[in-house]
């Protein structure tokens, strides 16, 4: 058991057989249960959960409280990706390396679909994970910067509420801004 005590953060399994819990020391990899809006329970390490400012203040307000923290605004799918991000971030807390961190962040967003990114934004916002919000906002900005208006509408699921005359006027006024746009 000495090796696992030295590296408590390396035990990243979501669940553990209950028989093993008794052998763990009180400090090592304490787990917290987080319940999503669609009633899925995620068991995450305390160090990961403390990355969520919202959860952190929940425990600061009521230190000895409940086993399961409800996250009513957080669906499971984006939440699992948010956890993935925070686990990576924790590694850089212990061992800061800005270059590696940037590389890891860009790897993270590269693998995500447009929908993934857009779904994670409100979750990161609700959980107050500033680093992730920065990464997501920049990633979305990079993806839409050179795109057409139609692409952006479908990216965010926005309905066009202009009349065709109004839209034509806007396009005419800033015609130069509609040039050199990437193909959809």
């Amino acid at each position: 058991m000495s090796s696992s005590a030295e590296n408590p953060t390396l035990t990243t399994e979501i669940t553990k057989p209950s028989t093993e819990i008794a052998t763990e020391t009180a400090q090592s990899a304490k787990k917290i249960n987080l319940k999503t809006s669609d009633d899925q329970i995620f068991e995450v390490e305390e160090s990961v959960a403390m990355e969520f400012a919202t959860v952190k203040s929940f425990f600061e307000d009521a230190p000895s409280s409940t086993d399961t923290v409800p996250l009513p605004n957080v669906p499971a799918k984006p939440f699992s990706q948010v956890i993935e991000f925070c686990k990576e971030q924790i590694k850089f807390k212990a061992n800061p390396d800005e270059t590696e961190k940037k590389k890891s962040n860009s790897e993270f967003v590269k693998e995500k679909t447009n929908e993934d990114l857009v779904e994670m934004i409100p979750v990161a916002n609700y959980l107050e994970i500033k680093d992730l919000l920065d990464v997501l906002n920049q990633a979305v900005a990079d993806r839409i910067q050179n795109r057409s208006v139609e692409y952006v509408r479908s990216f965010f699921g926005i309905d066009n509420d202009f009349t065709s005359e109004e839209e034509a006027l806007l396009r005419e006024e800033h015609a130069w801004a509609f040039e050199d746009v990437d193909e959809d």
């Binding site: 409100p122 906002n137 920049q138 839409i144 509408r153 965010f156 309905d159 066009n160 801004a177 746009v181």
Partner: peptide
């Protein structure tokens, strides 16, 4: 949250995206 993303865009994109909605 939309605003946080749009703030990172250059002016040319912003002028174009006035036509989004």
């Amino acid at each position: 949250m939309i605003k946080e993303t749009l703030l990172r865009l250059p002016v040319q994109s912003l002028l174009r995206f006035q036509a989004v909605c």
